[in-house]
Design a protein around this nucleic acid. Structure first.
Lengths: 241, 241
DNA sequence: CGGAAAGTTGAGTGGGATCAAGCCGCGTGG
DNA sequence: CCACGCGGCTTGATCCCACTCAACTTTCCG
């Protein structure tokens, strides 16, 4: 890095979908600050499926930008039971919940091959003091996670939560430029169950029922949404809290 | 305010329990910055029970520090049903979830007489750029809310969630210097039910059962915790996710 | 007072958990 | 090559907890 010349196309691909580099828009950052921002954001590093990116309790130092793949966030209670707290997709900023206590409150594990840009939090907050747009962006990212974390709170019917989950996945795939209609789940039925506070049996029955009702076609982890309108109808109690 | 002299005792009482003024510790803020911080934080204004402090959708401009009383955060779905999202107690910073979209995602209503210090968010973030400790404090407050929002996610048994709620209230009362053993609920059974995703009937039965089992004594809104150990045992699956 | 909202109590119901059995895909080793 | 085991997934039978509905009492406020 440093002075070495980078291919414009590579730079572009690095920038697209990175919430921090979005604050590099014309007039947002001076040349100096822009270089400083680049020095905060590490090159993306590949991680294999099953590898832990963060362990619960680990000291907080870096936040990260997920550029490719899926991460599962989960915690383990004293009896050893896993509770899936959420899934992260490309574009998501990870590790923000660790700022407060200085250590990560959850585990983060790769569900498939994942690329992450590490970002030194001390460096980027120092830079944020000099770059108002960047500071504002950090505040917004943190604020967004407060809101999204409270989405799952309501205790809705199983089919409603499941429909909301499917639509959420579809929308996030669409944001990456993939089809919102047809895609592959990166997580197991057990992960989905744990995330929605249901059992794998119930997830299995829901897949079957939704297929029978023509809402989707499913084969293993391949999913195709067929009745998006009906799914949105089902999910609306969840999405509107 | 301005040049008018303030009684030391009043200043002290203003400072205690205010998360922002805590960054005024020796060496944290220069004299200038300290004055600027004071100019961000309005004098506390009293609000009567039942008054809305914030309406869902309202434009975001101020965050706030709750100094006295209890706030209920809730949203209303399209069918008009209320969903209680949480309760705020003195020391809590409110409005942080509104930063992202520039408008408040929830309603905030006073459950009893409430005192709130409004804080101009644009002013305090500007100041934060000059005062690293203050910036760090803002990041921490935001991060804390991410973590606490995900606490309620798990789908545990009713008695476990109820026990966790009671202990949470006790701990927050204790933080204010009140008794953790005996206090008065500021919210109705319906609010508790909505918050825990249960029905008022279930809450009523839980109060009765807990009383019969010697875990607490309850009369109307007066609560006395009698079996704290047993309650913590019950709540542990919730608190450990 | 009186009317409404909050809270309590009881009886019955249903949705998702639990338990149990079996299936399928896959890697491993004989 | 097949036998075997294991984990993920499915399917069926049963159970239980919290919801629902209904009636009643209490509290709150005008």
């Amino acid at each position: 890095m440093g002075n070495t010349h980078q291919h414009p196309a590579e730079e572009l691909s690095l920038c697209s979908g990175c919430p921090f580099r979005e604050s590099c828009l014309p007039g947002y950052l001076s040349g100096d600050n822009r270089r400083d921002l680049e020095s905060c954001i590490d090159r993306p590093t590949p991680v294999h499926a099953g590898t832990h990116v963060v362990r619960q309790g680990q000291a907080f130092q870096y936040i990260g930008v997920l550029r490719l793949g899926t991460l599962k966030s989960y915690s383990v209670d004293r009896d050893g039971r896993e509770q899936t707290l959420g899934f992260h997709m490309p574009g998501d900023v990870i590790g923000l919940s660790a700022i407060d206590e200085g250590k990560h409150p959850t585990n983060l594990v790769a569900l498939d091959t994942v690329m992450i840009c590490r970002v030194s939090f001390s460096k980027i907050s120092e830079l944020a003091a000099r770059a108002p747009k960047l500071q504002s962006q950090l505040f917004k990212l943190l604020s967004r996670d407060i809101g999204s974390a409270s989405k799952n709170s309501g205790n809705h019917a199983a089919d409603e939560r499941f429909a909301a989950f499917l639509l959420g996945m579809a929308n996030r795939f669409a944001l990456q430029g993939f089809s919102a209609r047809r895609w592959q789940l990166s997580m197991s039925r057990m992960d989905i169950a744990s995330y929605l506070c249901l059992t794998p049996e119930t997830i299995s029955r829901l897949f079957k029922r939704f297929q029978k009702e023509g809402l989707l076609a499913v084969e293993g982890r391949d999913v195709e949404l067929k009745g998006r309108d009906r799914l949105e109808e089902l999910a609306s109690p969840v999405l509107n809290h």
